Amino acid sequence: MASIYKRGKTWTANILVTVDGQRKRKTKSGFLTKTQANKWAISVEEQKNTGKLPYSKKLFKDEYWSWYTIFKEPHIDENTKSWYLATYRLICDNWSDMKMSDVSVKELQLLINQYAENHVKSSVTHIKNMIGAFCRYAVDEGMLAKDISRNIVVASKKQGSNRDSKFLEHDQFLKLIELANEQNDITSKMILTACYSGCRYSEIAALNANDFDFKNNTITVNKSWSLQEKAVKKPKTNTSNRIIDMPTSFMNIAKGWNMSGNYSFQSTTGYPMTDNACNKKLAWLLEKLGAKQIKMHGLRHTHASYLLANDVDIQYVSERLGHAGVDITMKVYAHLMKEKRFKEKDKTIRLLQNL
Rank of each mutant, 00 (worst) to 15 (best):
M1W: 00
A2H: 01
A2G: 02
I4D: 03
I4N: 04
K6H: 02
R7G: 01
K9W: 04
T10E: 06
T12G: 00
A13I: 08
I15V: 12
I15F: 04
V19G: 11
D20P: 00
Q22W: 02
R25K: 14
S29Q: 11
T33Q: 07
T35G: 01
T35F: 08
T35N: 02
N38Q: 15
K39H: 10
A41H: 03
Q47Y: 07
K48P: 01
N49M: 13
G51R: 07
Y55Q: 15
L59N: 10
Y64F: 13
W65V: 01
Y68I: 07
Y68F: 15
T69M: 14
P74N: 13
I76P: 13
S82L: 08
S82W: 12
Y84M: 12
A86E: 06
A86M: 13
L90S: 14
D93M: 04
N94K: 15
S101A: 12
D102P: 02
S104R: 09
K106V: 11
L108V: 11
L108I: 10
Q109N: 02
I112Q: 03
N113I: 05
E117M: 09
N118P: 07
N118T: 13
K121V: 08
V124Y: 01
H126K: 15
D140C: 10
G142A: 04
I152G: 06
I152C: 13
S156W: 09
K157Y: 05
N162L: 00
E169Y: 08
D171F: 06
Q172M: 12
L174E: 04
K175D: 07
L176W: 04
E178P: 06
L179K: 13
I186T: 15
L192D: 05
C195F: 09
Y196D: 04
S197L: 05
G198M: 09
A206V: 00
L207K: 09
N208K: 11
N210S: 15
I219Q: 02
K223P: 05
L227G: 15
P235V: 07
R242P: 11
R242S: 13
T248C: 08
F250D: 07
N252C: 02
A254P: 00
N258W: 09
S267P: 04
T269Q: 15
P272E: 00
T274K: 13
C278Q: 05
N279F: 10
K280S: 03
W284P: 00
L285E: 02
G290C: 01
K292Q: 12
Q293Y: 02
Q293L: 00
K295E: 12
G298K: 08
L299N: 12
T302I: 04
H303I: 10
A304L: 08
I314D: 14
E319P: 03
G322Q: 13
V326E: 01
Y333W: 04
H335W: 11
K340Q: 15
R341T: 14
F342T: 05
K347I: 00
K347F: 00
T348K: 14
I349R: 09
N354G: 06
